[in-house]
Each structure stands twice: as structure tokens, then as C-alpha cells.
Computed example of a mutant assay.
Amino acid sequence: MEFLGIGYQELLLILVLLLVVVGPERLPQMAYQIGRAVRQMQLYARAVRDEFRDEIDYLDEQYRTMRGEIELAQRTLREEQAKLNEGLAEVDATLRAAEAEAGSALAAPPLPEAAAPGEPAAAPGPGGAPSPPLVF
């Protein structure tokens, strides 16, 4: 069995050296101080771990909230886009129908007789009077 890469022999050697260096009178006090330091470090580590967990939970909650809001906005935009597309399709159909109706109503009038070269053609206007030439 090894503890942090230290076998039985190394652990026994460390304990003997500690007993010789520190002495038998101060060894129990030193063990108490080491135990207290280890407990204090565990408390600090637990506090840090809990703080990180709380922060991660808070960030996760914020993420879920924002994601829900984004999905709601996307859904609303899709619905509005569908409504707009339907409206545009209706307007397009109406315009195409009006264009077809206007195209059939405006049959091409018969062409007037050809005028002399250099002279504009005058088509009879309302009431039989010639209308002025069209200039584009």
C-alpha cells in the first residue's frame, strides 16, 4: 500500500526522523497543529468548492433564462415573418389579377395610317380631333 507514492518503509523513516528532530514532548502538540491545519484547509477547500458551485448554478440559471427568451423571440419572429409572407402573397396575387384584367381590357387599338416621313402621326382623339404626338 502506498500513500502519495510513499511506501511503508519511507513512512516509518519519516516518523522516526520527526520524533528525533521534534522530540517526544512536542510531537503530540505538532500532530494536533498539523491536524488542525489540515481541517482548516479542508474547510477552505469546501468553501471555495461551494462558492464555485453557487456561481455555476447561477450562470446556468441565467443561461436557461436567456435561452428561453431567445427561443420566444425566434418563435415570434417566425410567426410575424409567416404573416408578412402571407400578406405579400395576397398583394402579389391581387396585383397580378389586376394586371391581367387591365391587360385584357386594353386591347391594342388599330394602328393609324402611316404618316409621311418626318411628320408625326396624329391619332384621332376623343371627339374625332387629332391628338398631339406622344413624346417619350
Rank of each mutant, 00 (worst) to 15 (best):
M1T: 07
M1E: 12
E2R: 09
G5L: 00
G5T: 09
G5Y: 01
I6R: 14
G7D: 15
Y8N: 11
Q9Y: 11
Q9T: 13
Q9F: 06
E10G: 14
L12W: 13
L13P: 00
I14H: 11
I14G: 03
L15P: 02
V16P: 00
V16R: 15
L17K: 15
V21L: 14
E25M: 15
L27D: 02
L27Y: 07
L27K: 05
Q29A: 14
M30W: 03
Q33T: 11
I34C: 04
G35E: 06
G35P: 04
R36Y: 13
A37K: 14
A37P: 06
R39T: 04
R39Y: 00
R39A: 06
M41L: 11
M41Y: 03
M41N: 10
Q42D: 11
L43Y: 03
L43E: 10
Y44L: 13
A45K: 06
A45D: 09
R46V: 03
R46A: 08
R46K: 02
A47G: 02
D50K: 00
R53A: 09
E55K: 04
I56Q: 08
D57M: 01
Y58W: 08
D60Q: 08
E61P: 00
Q62T: 00
Y63S: 11
Y63G: 05
R64C: 01
T65I: 12
R67D: 05
G68C: 08
G68T: 07
E69I: 01
E69Q: 09
L72W: 10
A73V: 05
A73W: 04
T76Q: 15
L77R: 13
L77K: 04
R78W: 06
E79W: 04
Q81P: 01
Q81A: 07
K83G: 02
L84C: 01
L84M: 02
L84T: 07
N85K: 03
N85A: 13
E86G: 02
G87F: 03
L88W: 10
E90P: 00
V91I: 12
D92H: 06
D92A: 15
T94Q: 07
L95S: 00
A97C: 00
A98P: 00
E99I: 05
A100S: 03
E101V: 06
E101L: 08
A102Q: 05
A102Y: 09
G103K: 13
G103H: 09
S104A: 14
A105H: 07
L106F: 08
L106Q: 06
P109H: 01
L111C: 07
L111E: 15
P112N: 08
E113Y: 04
A114P: 01
A114S: 10
A114F: 00
A114L: 10
P117G: 00
G118A: 04
P120H: 09
A121G: 02
A121H: 01
A121Y: 01
A122C: 10
A123M: 13
P124N: 03
P126Y: 12
P126R: 13
P126S: 12
P126C: 03
G128L: 07
G128H: 00
A129R: 14
S131W: 04
S131L: 15
P132R: 11
P133T: 06
L134W: 11
V135H: 13
F136T: 08
F136K: 09
